[in-house]
Design a protein around this nucleic acid. Structure first.
Lengths: 191, 191
DNA sequence: CAGGATGTCTAGCGTTGCTAGGGTGGAGTG
DNA sequence: CACTCCACCCTAGCAACGCTAGACATCCTG
């Protein structure tokens, strides 16, 4: 492997990331339906086929954006949990952080948890960021709770439902705080 | 209004419903991405523009299917609730019925609560079937519970999250029974 | 029976995701 | 230094998409 091919590999990796961030920027500016391979190619200043030399197709690009987003979410939840004054408050802090994330980055959230992606959840080859994010929910529950994972699944499901139903206007956009409060009180004591 | 124009109106209404059921059948057989205006037109044995004389566009057709589905869901939930041996058991019965519906008719469920539609939820002009379906959740809670609607929103959100996350493989497909059990126990006593 | 309205179809526009095939320029070799 | 070759990228195009304009036929009305 000569220095030249190494340089090319670096440039290629650079362009790979450029495509991902361009897709994300475009989606956050105009929504995922505006992210077409043509517009994306124009943004990165290459022709369409270049995209296909990096990704298997549009879904793979969305998946890459989603994975980045999940990493950010995991870090976001982690910060919230660690900033909480104690384990009892961590549950609420993490839940609020989750809903805030979904509200402030709705398009990113959509890629992560609504659109079809290639990401393998809950399996042997689940990428670390996914594990980390889910792990933050698990960490909200007592270590001696033998059903922590189950609690985490249901908690996550409830938050996801609240986020998506309010985002799509199927439940009123306001009232999130009350829903969060109710959810917490129903779970907190049996944490 | 002559008898002739009445007959035409009947035929037109008949064809209207034919389009809706054809769209639903096609979607349930091959998924919503297979429901194209061309294939749909072929199924109903009319040309594409005919679809547009009945509906404003593809979204409107999906919305019509969704509305039918919500009517069926409301009836399904209602039957489950009334068949329960008492109000205390109604909660579990309705929740199980909801998850069963989502599992057995995933494509219909997708149109109802995932895909973008024209349906107005939670507003003044909300269609009766939507109110009826949501009302079934409200009816699971004690009449003297002043926050019944809030409870219903959170319960629905949790069920919706469980249904969609498991459907898309983001939580394991099995374990639904345990999730349902946990959800019920967290809510039942403060019903 | 002519005239008009109603209804439906053919044809086509602009856009989509994706790909085949040609051309160019730099890397390696004699 | 010249030549070959290969890796890279672009132009051009395919089939399919949602949707629509305009021509054609069919039926009711005066």
């Amino acid at each position: 492997m000569s220095a030249i091919s190494e340089r090319r590999e670096r440039e290629r990796a650079r362009r790979h990331q450029l495509i991902i961030t361009a897709a994300r920027d475009l989606a956050e500016a105009e929504g995922w339906e505006a992210v077409t391979t043509r517009r994306l190619a124009e943004r990165v200043e290459y022709s369409q086929p270049v995209l296909y030399s990096h990704f298997d197709g549009k879904d793979a690009i969305v998946s890459a954006v989603a994975l980045d987003g999940i990493s950010e979410l995991a870090a976001h939840l982690r910060r919230a949990r660690q900033a909480a004054p104690g384990p009892a408050h961590a549950l609420r802090a993490v839940c609020r952080a989750y809903l805030d994330f979904a509200t402030e980055r709705p398009v990113l959230y959509e890629a992560m948890f609504v659109l079809p992606t290639n990401l393998k959840f809950a399996s042997a080859e689940t990428p670390p960021p996914l594990r980390a994010a889910f792990g933050e929910f698990v960490s909200c529950f007592r270590p001696d709770n033998e059903r922590r994972e189950l609690f985490a699944e249901v908690l996550w499901s409830a938050l996801h439902g609240i986020a998506t139903l309010s985002r799509s206007g199927r439940i009123p956009p306001d009232g999130q705080e009350e829903r969060l409060g109710l959810l917490i009180t129903q779970i907190a004591d049996t944490r």
